[in-house]
Design a protein around this nucleic acid. Structure first.
Lengths: 217, 217, 217, 217
DNA sequence: CATGAATGAGCCTTCATTCAT
DNA sequence: GATGAATGAAGGCTCATTCAT
């Protein structure tokens, strides 16, 4: 499966000519993301994507080879957005591990709080059956790095005797879960959901996790 | 949306007549569940459901009014399976709250370990966009009771000074998340996934959560 | 096309045994007639015919080879009913031709006033496209004899100088038309229709026709 | 029931672009009319309509929401065609009523002689059971105005002592019947039918009717 | 580049017909 | 004979994809 959409490289064109034209693919992707997230891949009609993007249906095919290619582009865009969020200063940060974990969680919250990354997370999970390649790519490029980051923070904390001894791999999964779940939640039970504001949720969550990790001493 | 499929009540028919007949709806539901879980609602063809159930396409319509009705039946079946799992002895159990929480988690694991309940959980989340009624029903009948159970255990622990003071509502969500996430995981990244066996995962998870809840004293 | 339904000859069975059984074909035909008339051939489901006849769907096939065969039987039954109505004493009646025409019209009205013959008339016209054989048979067995009868009365009247000189063939058609039309009317615009009672309609009709035929002298 | 098909208004589009495009709906309606007339609504396949119209099946759905909507459009078209035929100069015509009636009949004959109006008349009667709304609309918009016109001519004749005293309402029905019947005839017993040419039929018919209406003096 | 009319493969659904009981 | 569960061919409808303008 080709994750890179058929998209002409406009990088050498004069920049101030027609901003709309260059934004087209992005606008289409944004429209598609919204609808894929809302209705799922299969139930989303290209007509609706075109309508929402303000272009004709045929135009979509100028930039993407097929509906599946569009889906790939959507996910890839969200992938990039997500990846950029995982950039942490893990190494050069000299603070204590609890703070480091706290910042990681905030980063995460900011990243998946955007429609972009959040919707793609849900998409990757929902459509995993029909697009195993995407599921794998997403897992390898987003989930695994995130887990890895958490694992390293946990190991750092253990090494510095700030955290008690746990299985870092599993702990990372468990720590990540409530964050992912919260994202899925908001994209599935749109109306209603829990009325707990994100800040409180994160605070309480961090409190619980850190307490659980805290070294006995 | 009607969650009860149009399904004749066979309970009064002659029992030794044709054993297959009474099992048909169940077989169809099982086949449908498998495919819905694997490919999603829209991408599942009724032909394939029929093939897998070992019946003709028309037969499906003897028991279900439409593809959507079949989907409803599938979810409802999983709902029942899930609900039966939440039966806990919360009240008459005199043990300490940590043990109680541990048992709850085991119950949960058993329940959603079955394909039935697990697949339906993933379905409810994946197809929430297209079937808001189902999403709501699932939330109200499965998720919310589960959260409530956890909340009550947390409050019990706090009342008995076994747990420190936390927000029970949020804590319940956070405690539930890794369990749900694990289920989703297994239904999305089928091959691969984490190679951590469920028992170890649960043990580590319980350890972390209980440590996090532990009263300081 | 076979106008004779596959129907076992019960004429030699003991008569007082099980009246229902022998009446089955007739009951099925009656139910079919009602539904064919109401909804047309294609829109009538055999399930509904069975339901209305109080038998199972399979039973229909004990008496009729196919839906088309049932339709044929229905029409043929109505044909017989209609034909029996055309039995007139044309020859031995010595009265004047106006009276003779009046009696013919009354006969006609009685015949097509029954649901049986009336419905079949409408059926034959409506479904002529799909069942040309039936249309022809109906035309040859019912319409043509009726026209012929009228023609002979008109010719008799002309021969006896009771009627003025007209084209008997055409006159017969024109005289028949309002009678047929009235029947069609009642089977098409069921509710509403004209509120003129049949008696008045016939009287006025006869008055107009006879006046039109009246010899000038 | 909505008699107006979902049909984009092309009146403002560039005219010299693609002559075919604007004719499409009309061509589809014509093809549908032919087949509906020939085989009835239910027995007509949209594939066949498409084939006859020289378009693909999907194209039909560009202009009509459903088979039923297409049927509505067909009837409505025929309705318009029929209504335009009932335009008579009743008021300003100073001639005698017999002539007026004669002209009305010619108008009628011209109108329903076209496939359009004639086929729709038969359709309205045949499919009245399945489309009561259409039957009513047709009755109210075509039949009733026609009857009304005839009634007014009859009353005019009576007022001017050209016609004898009859019930105008009933007379109108009776006068209309042979005309309608002739139309139905031609659409039902396509091959064969009576071999009397329309002109002779009309002449004989008028002769009979006028004679019947003639004032005794 | 952009459009949107046209296409046709594919799927849900219906229903006449069969057949084991 | 009678039943009604099961069948599967057929048709209405959708929508991703193409292409002439």
């Amino acid at each position: 499966m080709d994750l890179i959409p058929t998209m002409p490289d406009h990088s050498l064109e004069k920049p101030a000519h027609c901003r709309r034209k260059e934004a087209r693919p992005t606008e289409i992707i944004a429209a598609a993301l919204h609808l894929f997230d809302e209705k799922g891949y299969a139930a989303t009609r290209l007509d609706d994507v075109a309508l929402r993007a303000g272009v004709s249906k045929g135009t979509i095919y100028l930039y993407f080879d097929s509906k599946e290619a569009l889906f790939n582009a959507v996910v890839r865009e969200g992938l990039v957005a997500a990846l950029s969020g995982w950039e942490v200063r893990l190494a050069n940060d000299a603070g204590n591990s609890s703070n480091l974990l706290g910042e990681l969680v905030l980063d995460f919250s900011r990243m998946f709080g955007s429609d972009q990354a959040g919707a793609v997370l849900k998409l990757a999970l929902s459509e995993a059956g029909n697009f195993p390649d995407i599921a794998h790519t997403y897992h390898d490029c987003v989930i695994e790095p995130g887990i890895d980051l958490l694992r390293r923070v946990v190991m750092r904390g253990m090494a510095r005797r700030e955290f008690r001894s746990v299985n870092p791999e599993i702990a990372a999964h468990i720590i990540l879960a409530p964050l992912l779940m919260r994202v899925i939640w908001e994209h599935s039970f749109i109306c209603g959901g829990s009325d707990v504001p994100t800040e409180r949720y994160l605070a309480e969550y961090l409190d619980l996790v850190l307490e659980g990790l805290q070294s006995a001493g």
